[in-house]
Design a protein around this nucleic acid. Structure first.
Lengths: 243, 243
DNA sequence: GCATATTTGTCCGTATGTATA
DNA sequence: CTATACATACGGACAAATATG
C-alpha cells in the first residue's frame, strides 16, 4: 500500500473524530490501522501529512503518538519522527518469555486464590470467559473466518491471564497481545497458524474445569513454546533482520 | 510542604534543563520530586505555574505529563488537570499480586534456562547483581542510611526479576517499583520496615547460590505476603480511603 | 442558581536545530 | 557542502469546561 493510499483512507475517517478527547480518538484510528496491518511496520508517520489528513493540529497529533508509543505500536526516534514498530526476532522471543511468566503465573495464582475462600464466588465467571473465548474461536473456524479465529485466540489468552484477578496483569497482557498483532502479519498462512491451536485451547479449558491446574499450566507452557517456535521460524523465513 | 515551597525549589532546577529532549528532562525532574515524596500524592500540577517555574512552554510540559502518566506517577483528569497519583489499598494489593507473578516467575524461568545450556554463561553475572544489591543494603544499614536501604531493596528485587533475562520483564518491574515508591512514603517508620527484610534478602541470595530455586521462590512469596500485609495495615492506619 | 474567573483543550504561526538527499 | 525537509520548541490565541464567589 502506497503512502497516498492510506493517507486518503485516513481522510475518510476524519468525520469520526467528533467525541471526547481528540488525541485519544486519533490514537484509536491509528491503532486500528496498525493492528489491522494497513500501516506496515517501518512506515514513517509524518506529523504534517497525518495531521492534515485527520484535520488535527500537530500538538494534538503528537499527544496521540505518545499514547501509541507507550503501547509500543510506534517508536519515536528523536529528531527523526515516529515509525510503525518493527519487531525483531528477539522481540518475538521476549514477548513469549513474558507470556510464559504472565499466563502460567496467572493460572497458578488464580488456583491459589480459588483454593482460598475470599474470592471463590468470582471463579465461575472467570472460567465462563475462558469458555466463551474457546467457543468463539470454534464458531469462527466453522464459518471460515480466520481473522476472527485469531481475535478469539487473543480473547482466550486474555481470559486466561484474567484468572489472576489483577487489573495490572490484565493491562500488561493487553499491551503484550496488541504488540503481538504486529508479528502475526508476517505469517504467510495465518489460518493454519491459528487453527492449529483451537484444540489446545479447548484442552486447556477442560483442564481448568477439572481443576487440574498443574496440567493446565503445563499445557499453556507447551502451547507457548510451540507457537514461539513457529513464529520465529516464519520470521526468519520472511528475511527479518535481528537488530 | 506548601505550593509555593516546592514551586521555588523547582525553579532552582531550571538550569539543569540543558540537554536532549526537553519534555524528557522535565519528566526526569518531576519524577524525582514525586518519588522522593516532595510532591505529595493528590497535589495538582498546574500547567501554567510549573511551566513558568521550569521555563518551558505549556505544550512541552504537557508532553512531560503524558510520559509520567504512562508511568502511573500522574493521573490525568480530562478538563481538570493532572495530579500526583494517589494509590488506594486496592492498588497496593494489586501491585503485590503482580510482583508475586513477576518475581516468582522470573526465578522459575531463570532456573529453567539456567538448567538448559543456551544462556548458562550469563547466570553468574545475574547472581552477582543480586549479591551486590544485598551487600549494598547491608552496608547502608550499618551506616544508618535508611533511605539507601530502601533503594538497595529496590535494586535487590530488580535484580531478582532480571533472572528472567527479559527486557520486558525488567521494564515492567521498573515501573512497578517506581509506583511502589508512592506507597512507601505513607510508612511511618520506613527504617524499621526496610531493615526487617535485609536478612530475608540475604537468605534468598543463599538459596539462589545453592540452586534451591523452589526454596527461593517460596521465600520470595513469603516475603511479599509479609510486606504486603505490613503495608496494607500501615495504609489503613493512615486513614487512606479505598476508592 | 447564576455570573465570573481560572484553567484546560486545541489550534496556529514561527524560529531553530537536526538529519538526509 | 549545500539545500531541503522535517522535528522540536516556543508563544499566542480562543473556545470550552470547571471552579469560585
Amino acid at each position: 500500500m502506497t503512502k497516498s493510499d492510506w493517507l486518503s483512507e485516513l481522510r475518510a475517517e476524519a468525520p469520526r473524530l467528533g467525541r471526547a478527547s481528540t488525541a485519544g480518538r486519533v490514537a484509536d484510528v491509528l491503532r486500528t490501522r496498525i493492528t489491522e496491518g494497513s500501516l506496515a511496520p517501518g512506515t514513517r508517520l509524518s506529523e504534517e501529512d497525518i495531521g492534515a489528513a485527520l484535520g488535527v493540529s500537530r500538538n494534538t497529533l503528537r499527544e496521540a503518538f505518545r499514547l501509541l508509543g507507550h503501547e509500543r505500536l510506534l517508536v519515536h526516534e528523536f529528531n527523526r519522527g515516529v515509525f510503525v514498530r518493527k519487531l525483531t526476532v528477539e522481540d518475538v522471543r521476549d514477548l513469549y518469555e513474558l507470556r510464559r511468566i504472565l499466563e502460567c503465573g496467572a493460572v497458578r495464582r488464580g488456583a491459589e486464590r480459588h483454593a482460598g475462600t475470599a474470592t471463590a464466588e468470582r471463579w465461575p465467571a472467570l472460567l465462563d470467559a475462558v469458555r466463551a473465548a474457546v467457543e468463539e474461536g470454534e464458531a469462527a473456524a466453522e464459518r471460515g473466518r480466520w481473522l476472527d479465529v485469531g481475535t478469539a485466540n487473543m480473547h482466550f489468552h486474555q481470559a486466561v491471564s484474567a484468572l489472576a484477578q489483577s487489573p495490572r496483569v490484565d493491562e500488561a497482557m493487553g499491551h503484550l497481545l496488541a504488540e503481538l498483532r504486529l508479528v502475526f502479519h508476517v505469517m504467510a498462512a495465518p489460518q493454519a497458524f491459528h487453527e492449529s491451536y483451537l484444540a489446545d485451547n479447548r484442552a486447556i479449558l477442560e483442564l481448568l474445569l477439572a481443576e487440574d491446574f498443574e496440567g493446565a499450566e503445563k499445557a499453556i507452557a507447551d502451547y507457548l513454546d510451540a507457537a514461539e517456535a513457529q513464529l520465529v521460524e516464519a520470521y526468519s523465513a520472511a528475511g527479518q533482520v535481528s537488530a
